[in-house]
């Protein structure tokens, strides 16, 4: 063996490298099959950041199709329900500058809305059920329909198809449970506000 290596140095080196290449090739080939990733992981990541209202305001029939479109080079500022927050996080993910929202696709509505069917006016035509992208409307033909408020994304798509115009988009109730502390207004020493105004904003900094 040693003699062979000494005598045929070049050949034995090639042999050894070739053997190693085959071994590692086999390992890599196995790994490529065993740990194959289904689909595009970037699409899933982008889809994760989108608000999932499935409203179609971006021009694609749902959030995942839009995520796919973004991967294929579409602009990231076409999502009004997500607003600037979503655009910023998308820009972070894709390492691009965050543009402002493309108003062409609609305006940001700060108040979250939920669809409501005036039930005694519903004729049971099922048109809204077909239009709902998240199956949040319950009902059957010629029977009253109703919206499962917890599932409704407020996408607005059910309003147009209704033949008797019995669907309203109501603002979500803002109860104590939804309430949260406001960020303090950025007061600095040069902003001399009258006493009455500061006292109302100084709810908790009582120290």
């Amino acid at each position: 063996m040693l003699d062979f290596i000494n005598q045929q140095a070049l050949f034995s080196a090639l042999l050894a490298l070739g053997a190693l290449a085959i071994c590692f090739g086999a390992v890599l080939g196995f790994a490529a099959i065993k740990y194959k990733i289904e689909g595009d992981p970037l699409v899933a990541k982008i889809d994760e950041l989108l608000p999932q209202t499935q409203c179609g305001q971006c021009g694609y029939p749902g959030c995942r199709p839009y995520a796919e479109a973004i991967v294929n080079g579409d602009a990231i500022n076409k999502c009004p329900p997500g607003g600037q927050t979503t655009i910023n996080s998308l820009a972070n993910l894709l390492a691009v500058d965050a543009p402002s929202l493309d108003e062409e696709h609609g305006e940001v509505d700060e108040i979250k809305k939920v669809a409501f069917i005036r039930e005694d006016e519903c004729i049971g035509c099922t048109k809204c059920i077909q239009a709902c992208p998240v199956d949040a409307i319950l009902g059957a033909a010629k029977h009253m329909h109703t919206v499962i408020a917890a599932e409704c994304t407020g996408c607005d798509l059910c309003v147009e198809p209704c033949p008797v115009d019995c669907i309203d988009m109501l603002p979500l109730q803002q109860g104590i449970d939804q309430w949260k502390w406001r960020k303090p207004s950025n007061l600095i020493a040069s902003d001399h506000l009258p006493v009455s105004e500061t006292s109302s904003s100084a709810a908790e900094d009582a120290a």
């Binding site: 409203c55 062409e104 077909q130 147009e160």
Partner: peptide, 20 residues
């Protein structure tokens, strides 16, 4: 097209026009 796509198209055209 199914109903949802139609509705999306309509809504989109509407918002597109509105913004302009």
């Amino acid at each position: 097209k199914n109903a949802a796509e139609l509705a999306i198209e309509k809504a989109q055209a509407k918002t597109g026009n509105l913004s302009a």
